[in-house]
């Protein structure tokens, strides 16, 4: 505090730390914790899931049966079997159909918002799409049960309306908003100069979009679709409610199926912790975790990836 005197004589206290220094330190530590928490959490979750599922993989699992048998009978008294093929097929078929619904919807919406809508329309649309993404999945499941179900029964004259078609459409509508948002960001990131150049060369609006903007935004668009696929794989509640939840290898969109996620959600509460069944469910979790991890990682690489024309 007697700095004036100290400075006058040409010396000063180089070690003096005031409150700002400490605040800086604390904030740095906080931000660092926030930053690494994502890494810690993901490793933690991975360790947790594998820890619980690993016993099954080493002791009971028949890899051939797991991936090729559609017989998921974990509660059978004399001979429980753990074939996940039907569950994998259920998740895959629902997600596949969902993408058939979501890709055209979301790309169309993204192109409209990014390239055509102006001013207020654009802002309102963006907000609405984001709101759509915030609808809880149980609400979507409810729509699947109470609206889609009778609609499908009536339209296609089938006995059950809870099936691949129902879950696929619901999941597609669920995934579309987030895909729209990411795809729109990708389109917006294409420099104006490209559009201007193409237009000045005499390209129509459609030609500008199709020949310049979409190719330039390709990586971001692929990432949008992949994140949608990841969302589809991981979605539980809506699929549980709309898919019929019966073990089947689907041969048509009107077959009921059961998803990996829905199986875990429905059965985990009923099993004894540490039992074979319990561990098998965690093995399904490992599979899901692995698949979504790979999909999201790929999407991320695409977003970061340098475009190669």
């Amino acid at each position: 505090m007697d700095s004036s005197g100290a400075q006058a004589s040409g010396t000063f206290d180089a070690d003096r730390r005031n409150a700002s220094w400490w605040v800086d330190r604390v904030v740095q530590a906080l931000v660092f914790t926030g930053g690494v928490s994502a890494i810690v959490l993901i490793i933690g979750i991975f360790v947790f899931i594998t820890g619980h599922g690993f016993g099954f993989i080493t002791d009971h699992m028949d890899v051939g049966e797991f991936f090729t048998s559609p017989k998921w009978r974990p509660t059978s008294d004399n001979n429980p079997t753990y074939g996940a093929l039907a569950l994998i097929a259920g998740t895959a078929s629902v997600t596949g159909l969902a993408m058939l619904v979501a890709v055209p919807f979301s790309l169309g919406a993204a192109i409209f918002i990014a390239e055509f809508a102006k001013g207020k329309t654009r802002e309102v649309l963006k907000v609405l799409v984001e709101l759509l993404a915030a609808i809880p999945s149980v609400v979507w499941g409810f729509i699947g049960l109470s609206i889609m179900n009778p609609l499908i029964i009536e339209t296609f004259d089938v006995p059950v309306g809870l099936n691949v078609l129902n879950a696929g459409v619901i999941l597609g509508l669920m995934a579309a908003p987030i895909m729209t948002t990411i795809a729109e960001d990708a389109l917006k990131a294409v420099p104006e100069g490209f559009r201007e150049a193409a237009e000045a060369l005499g390209a129509t609006r459609w030609q500008v979009i199709f020949k310049v903007v979409l190719p330039a935004a390709r990586n971001g668009l692929v990432a949008a679709v992949l994140l949608g696929v990841g969302r589809g794989f991981g979605e539980t509640m809506a699929v549980l409610m709309a898919s019929g939840h019966s073990i089947n290898l689907p041969t048509s969109p009107f077959d009921s199926v059961r998803a990996l996620t829905a199986t875990i959600a429905a059965e985990l509460g009923e099993t004894a912790a540490g039992s074979e069944h319990y561990q098998a469910l965690f093995t399904l979790g490992i599979l899901l975790f692995g698949v979504t991890f790979v999909i999201n990682l790929t999407a991320d690489l695409f977003i970061r990836g340098r475009r190669k024309p």
Binding site: P191, G193, F194, A198, A200, L201, G202, P309
Partner: peptide
């Protein structure tokens, strides 16, 4: 018809703005 106008009237911009395509595709684009 703006497409016809722009066919007759080429434009060069302040900042070079080649399209994100190959050299060949840029030349042949128009």
């Amino acid at each position: 018809e703006l497409v016809q106008v722009r066919k007759q009237v080429g434009m060069v911009f302040q900042r070079p703005n080649p399209l994100p395509l190959s050299i060949r595709d840029n030349v042949i684009f128009g």
